[in-house]
Design a protein around this nucleic acid. Structure first.
Lengths: 333, 333
DNA sequence: ATGAAAGCGCTAACAA
DNA sequence: TTGTTAGCGCTTTCAT
């Protein structure tokens, strides 16, 4: 920058003003400086600014893992939104393990991020305290809790599962099973409860015997579906806690020679693109990763603007993405 | 840090020395300072160091998109390797679009990254010149070209496709089809050629009529397989340019009621975890994302150490991951 | 063994 | 309208 100033015969302050579009510069000088800037294809060093002001124009994202395609999809949208608003992304994965979470938080603090999206579903709140202490806004997902400096974006599971059950009901299904997430995890309970409410509000019987737990992964869905198939009175449709679980369920059904969707309908949750790659393409309750990313940013902005006010509690809607894994219930009612 | 120095009754220089484990500090003083450090749970500000030395301890990663699960898998491993060596990751996605690439490169320069992995397969070399100009090491993938400051990590397609063809031959397959990537892209030609060589070296006939192009995505694989099925003399096995293509092929086969693997074997490329989620689980030529990440780091390190020497040309091996989409060729020889 | 001080690049307050 | 200067936090000579 000094080089530019010298070449242009002005001070570095003037150069800075030109770069930041300060109006207090004679247009003539500004033009001249701009030419030199181009000439040397000067690229500013935002790190100096970060040092000066403690703001890095970077947002942190803490993610449990990337094996579930929903996370990359979210990541992509989040990154796009950030680039649009001239921010950077600092990514940390935790493998759902507490020490790595603590370390990730430390990295976020070190890099002076302006805010953090914490997607680790279960964790000790103490792990993120260093952020709150330093007034770094955070936003959590599906925790439904807010406090000063901390907002939350919740997915509207109720609405989502209600639509799924309604769709199945319209197709004539009455016996509907559910494969949930790991037991003991908050979001698993929330999803199951949303499914139950969906059944009740559709006037269908919620049958405990058709409920299984999975692990949000393919293997858990496979095992759970295999177990459901042992039931004397099988369901005609199964709804799952996420798409990977549904993939596992589909795999188990294939392995048992059961046709989807003619003999059994399956509905996943997340609406990942990969749902289109399996056979049959998976009907799923879709969460728009774009909406989610934008809600996170909104909550973060709010906390940055009003550090002392309670963080935002936002909700993201779901839409039923009907592909090909659902069809009329078989007649053997 | 000043606070720490005051509290400890020493100078900030001493604190710095303690933090960096300089031996030139009396153990007694060091111990004392360390206690204060803990007390105030001091977190250093690496940004100051970056400003001072122009090194950020950050590596950049430029990726075309995240829709192909191979990229997230690579990203995960790369991030892990970086965290282990106390580095950060700066991620940029380009959607295979040149202006975004240029912008990504600019971001990398601004953040003073210590090196960049460029995974955009096709691009104008001029786009990365700002990096080379500033002596920032880069490593490309599958370009097989190196120069000072720029290395390359190539996947050993020859070896991979050789194994795949060999495996099929042992299962009695003779007529083997291939679904490649987009035409006109360098890596597509390389993959096709590797497949051809594999066929020849196995003593099998490479038949142009069984070759199709895809687009590295599910839809392309689906369409290509549908086209292959129109051939009067169908192949008994199909090898693809990547796993997504194979997923599409599988989907088309399902839709046509053709059993895999009893009537047709399919082999993908990449070995993504998701290959286990489809039915039947996909046999694939696997590239270890971990090996790839480490090779990239190694090439980057080399260029950092020897800026004037030509960058490393590394090769990453493939291993055949046999799952369930391959079986003995049907008898209708 | 420790301290003082310079300097990395930038911007805002203040001066001219 | 433009220039001068201080200071963000750190490391590293150079002194002591």
């Amino acid at each position: 920058m000094r080089t530019v100033a010298q070449r242009a015969g002005v001070s570095s302050a003037t150069v800075s003003r030109v770069i930041n579009g300060s109006p207090a510069v004679k247009e003539e000088t500004a033009e001249h400086v701009r030419r030199i800037l181009k000439e040397l294809n000067f690229i500013p060093n935002p790190i100096a600014t970060t040092l000066k002001y403690g703001r890095s124009n970077t947002y942190g994202l803490i993610i449990p893992d990337l094996a579930n395609p929903f996370y990359p999809e979210f990541l992509l949208n989040f990154e796009e939104a950030l680039v649009e608003s001239d921010h950077e992304l600092l990514l940390a994965t935790t493998q759902s393990n507490e020490p790595k979470l603590v370390n990730s938080v430390r990295r976020m603090v070190m890099r002076r991020v302006d805010g953090v999206v914490v997607m680790a579903s279960e964790y000790d709140t103490r792990a993120v305290e260093p952020l709150l202490d330093r007034q770094i806004p955070i936003v959590t997902i599906d925790r439904n809790r807010a406090q000063p400096g901390s907002g939350d974006v919740a997915i509207d599971f109720d609405e989502g599962y209600r639509q799924a059950v309604q769709h199945l009901k319209e197709l004539g299904h009455k016996r509907i099973g559910f494969i949930g997430g790991n037991v003991g995890i908050h979001t698993s309970a929330v999803r199951l409860e949303a499914f139950r409410k969906g059944m009740v509000s559709a006037g269908l019987t919620f049958d405990e015997r058709l409920i299984r737990s999975g692990d949000y992964r393919v293997s858990g869905g496979d095992a759970a579906m295999a177990s459901i198939l042992m039931e004397p009175r099988r369901p005609t449709a199964v709804v799952t806690a996420n798409d990977l679980t549904a993939f596992g369920a589909l795999r188990a059904l294939h392995a048992h020679g059961i046709q989807v969707p003619s003999e059994m309908s399956v509905i996943g949750f997340d609406g990942i693109q990969m749902g289109d790659a399996v056979y049959p393409p998976l009907t799923s309750i879709a969460v728009s990763p774009r909406d989610l990313a934008q809600a996170c940013l909104r909550a973060l902005d709010h906390s940055k603007l009003h550090p002392s006010r309670r963080g935002l509690l936002l909700k993201v809607r779901c839409t039923l993405l009907v592909r090909s894994s659902t069809n009329r219930a078989p007649d053997r009612a």
